[in-house]
Structure formats: C-alpha cells, structure tokens
Design a binder for these strands. Structure first.
Lengths: 220, 220
DNA sequence: GTGGATGGCTTGACAGTGTCAAGACCTGTC
DNA sequence: GACAGGTCTTGACACTGTCAAGCCATCCAC
C-alpha cells in the first residue's frame, strides 16, 4: 500500500502537487500528504476525497484506485502517523535511565501530535479508519509495545509488584489525554499555569512516577 | 434549545417516533434520541441529518429548523451527554471519603460512556460539535469543575503541595482514556487481564492515588 | 524497434447528502 | 373568527462517495 522508507519525512510531499506526466510518480504519497494538509486546515470533518484529488491535481476517482475508498486513504494516513510515532519512540530507546526514557517518549508523543495535526486527527478518529489494516495495526501495536517495554523496565528496577499492562494503558491514556488537550480537542480548562508542553509532560511525569514506583495496578 | 429536566432519562425518547399530529410535541428531544440511536448503531460516521429525520418520522429539513445545521444537533446531543455525566458526578458528591468519591466518579464516567455510546461518541468527536455553545460548554465545564473540587479535597487532606489543576487534568485524561479503551475506540491491546470495568478503574485508581498523595504535579 | 499487456488514471453517471428559500400547516390569542 | 408566529414540508441546488467503462503511458517479450 505504501513503500518502505528510510528516514521519515512525510510532512512535505516527495512529489510536486501537479505532475507534468500522465503517470504521477508516487500518487499515494501525494494523496496522503494532501489529506494531512487538508485535515490540518479544516479538521477531519472538512476532509473529502474529491478535494484531496483536486489538491493533488488528479481526477476525482484517482484516490479510489489506490485506496479503495475514503477509509482506505484515511487508514493509510493514520498508519503513517503511527510510523512517525514509532520512529520518535525508537529515538528515545537508547536513554539508559528508564524514567527519563519514559519522559522522552511522552514528549515524543505530544510533539508528534503537535507537528502532524493532520495525521493525529485521523489517528484519534477511530471510526474513520480500518483497524484491521495490517500496516496500521502493525505500527500501532509496535508503538504500544515500546511503551510496555519501558514500563516493564521501570517495574523491574523499582517496583516488581507493578501490574505492567494496566500501568502501560494508564500511562498511554494520560499522555494521549495531554496531547488532545494541547491540540485544543478538549473541554478542560487549561489552568495548569503553563502552555509549555514539555513542562506539562514533566508535571504529569512527576505524578505518574509515584504510581509506577509505589502502586501495584491491582485491586486494593 | 432544550427544556430543563428534573430526573434525567434521555435514553428512551419521551414521544413516539412517528407523531400523529402535524406538530410533533417535542421534536428536538426525538431528534436527539434518534441521533444517539443512529450513532450507537453505526458510529459517528454513519450519522446523517436525513436519516435522523427519517427515524423521527419528519421531513428532511425539519432538524435544521430546530438546530440550524448538523453540528447544532450533534452539539445538543453532546451537551445532553455532559448533562448525564454531571448527574452521575453529583450522585457521588455525598461520599465523605474523598478517594472513594474520586473512584466513584471514575466509575461514573466510564459507565456513562458505556451506557450512552451514542452520546459519548459525539462528546469525543470534538470537531463535530460547536464548543462555543453555551449549554454544551456549561455542562462540560461543570463536570470538570466537580473533578477539580474532588482533587482539591484530596490535596487538602493528604498533600497540600499538589498542583491541583495539573492533577485534575491528569486524572481526567487517564479516566477518559480508560473509557475509550473500554468502548473499543483504541489500538492498545487490552492485556490487563480483566474486562471488568470497575476492576480496571480500581487498578487505575491504585496507581493514581500514589501520585495524588506523594507527587507535586510540578517540574521536578 | 514493435506490439501487446498491465497498471495508472480519467470520464461519466448514480444515488445520497447538507443547506437554503419558499410555502403550507397548526395552534394560541385577541 | 381572523390573525400572528412558530412548526414543519416541499423543492431545488451544489456537493459528495462509489462504480463501470474506457483511455493512456510504460514495460517487457519478441
């Protein structure tokens, strides 16, 4: 559905928006880029296959040829988003201090969302994407797996009694909530006294580390 | 936009779906109920104004008369969802033990979501609703306010140094994440070893209470 | 080189959608 | 009983996603 890439740079499309030739070159990538751009501008609601095709300079039915239907295209964009996230998570893996690593992953999550709002908007709209898509589910699972590994490492070092799976879900939920918060997809008043994302992540991290060190994640 | 109600029971519409008379009686409520039902069946994507009108037995343009456009109707449904949530939160307020109260509110959040999936689906789709709507924002703010009050009470009793606002956002994020997890809107493998919602809430609660008791919610 | 064959993309059509303007209908009030 | 105002319908418009059919460029065997 999309070719493997080495260094990831999805934000700017690898091909010009209007191709001179009949054959586009890499239309799927251009369509994903146009989709992310459109959703960044107008939100997931403003998305339409025909508008995406228009922006890519192709006919209205061209996207269907590559992605089947609109959920196929959106799923591909979401998969790209998770691939970006996995890349960020993997950058943090060499950090030896496990708590610092978890903090870095949290920052990575929120920054990925802020830097790729089009992708993140689709990743959050679970009704729009096809969860069974192998590429999508592979990257999504890998991202969560990396989190579980880090939480496991923290547990091994500091708190062997921790229910690692529950704790990982808990961390993911909190960080995801913070990301949506920062993107304005929320109804919570942001009164935490700062707009600095990294500071908020560290505030959350301070709270979370006490649970990870001293909690069990089991029924009391 | 909708009448005040005493005891809340939105799930079953107060009027039959097809009105015998030209004037429906309470068409706005019937349209909200049809919307929630439709979204429960088909997800937010499957929603359409015309299908809602069909289910309510009125013409395709009737919803627009009451709600302006589709986002007006969805906003009203989301507001109803927050009203349900506030009602649940208020039921928990008499609980004297503040930690138990917070746990009860967490359970209330998740159960409200599970029992009203149509409403919750809209509440989560922040692009679909008009955040400036006074009724919507009032109930949403009230729900968060009740959470802040409870976290404040816990801080006063156990941990005066706690950054209450950051902690409240943190709790909300985690509980919201758990709710979406339970509703299947997620890519996390649920490996926590249970499908019992109340047990999961208590697992999260065990982790969270250590942060609330011992953390500060400030940059270390 | 040349002639298929194959995949990439276009064209045209269809039913369905949201929104608007105009009008029909009912109900309460004087 | 007339009238005013809110409730709902009708009809139209531009737009959408999807499908079937066909055109076009490229590639590979010959």
């Amino acid at each position: 559905m999309s070719r493997p890439v080495g260094k990831i740079s999805f934000v700017t499309p690898p091909v010009p928006e209007r191709a001179a030739t009949y054959h586009h070159g890499d239309l799927p990538a251009a369509l994903r880029a146009a989709t992310a751009e459109l959703i960044t501008e107008k939100g997931p609601t403003g998305f339409s296959l025909r508008e995406v095709a228009r922006r890519a300079g192709v006919s209205h039915a061209a996207p269907a040829h590559h992605f089947g239907d609109s959920s196929g295209l959106l799923t591909s964009v979401a998969a790209e988003g998770y691939r970006l996230l996995v890349a960020r998570f993997e950058e943090a893996q060499p950090i030896a201090n496990t708590v610092d690593r978890l903090n870095a992953m949290g920052k990575g999550y929120v920054h990925t969302a802020l830097e790729n709002p089009g992708h993140f908007g689709v990743m959050c709209s679970h009704e729009l994407v096809n969860n069974d898509d192998p590429e999508f589910s592979t990257f999504a699972a890998r991202a969560f797996e990396l989190l579980v590994e880090t939480v496991t490492a923290i547990a091994n070092e500091h708190n062997p009694k921790l229910n690692v799976d529950a704790a990982a879900m808990w961390v993911w939920s909190a960080v995801h909530g913070l990301a949506t918060l920062q993107m304005g997809f929320t109804n919570m008043d942001d009164k935490a006294g700062t707009n600095d994302v990294d500071e908020l992540i560290e505030q959350f991290g301070d709270l979370m580390v006490h649970g990870l060190f001293n909690g069990t994640g089991t029924r009391p």
